[in-house]
Amino acid sequence: MMDAAAQEKLISVINEKFEGEIIEAAMDKDFFTLIVKKERIVDIISHLYNHEDTKFQYLTTLFAVHYPDQNQIAMVYQLHNLSTNQRIRLKIFLSADNPTTPTLTTVFSAANWMEREAYDFYGVISQGHPNLIRILNVEDMLIFPMRKEYPLEDQTREDKNDLMFGR
């Protein structure tokens, strides 16, 4: 967990080169979370990777979240500094109509499959990704199943009557 001094340090490191990019910085439960503007996310992560004071050199995870009410898809990046054992979360918001973001594979090779997964389930296009194809679902699937506009249940079943389920 990051104390207040470490949080301030992190923010100042980002502001050295990316003044005004941070929209919001707050503790989310016990996880320090920064919401940043989407355009320069890769540069910010690259900066945090290389900077002497941060060295966030391990990508714990990368995933998308759909917010149907705001018509937005968030991309979430969780980074880990293995020498000080600090973790941060960076979040950017994309329009759900056309979710595109530059690929993070230029910084972390580990982002390759995770960006494919975000594409597979949410349709997030990672521009510059070396192999942006579906990773878990069948290749000929037409939808992005984790988006809220698509029902969870298999739509090809004819034996399930809504009446039987009280709806």
Binding site: N137, P145, L152, E153, D154, Q155, T156
Partner: peptide, 12 residues
Amino acid sequence: SGGIFDTYSVLQ
């Protein structure tokens, strides 16, 4: 029948 897995990824 697909069982409890009535979902987009499972063969029914």
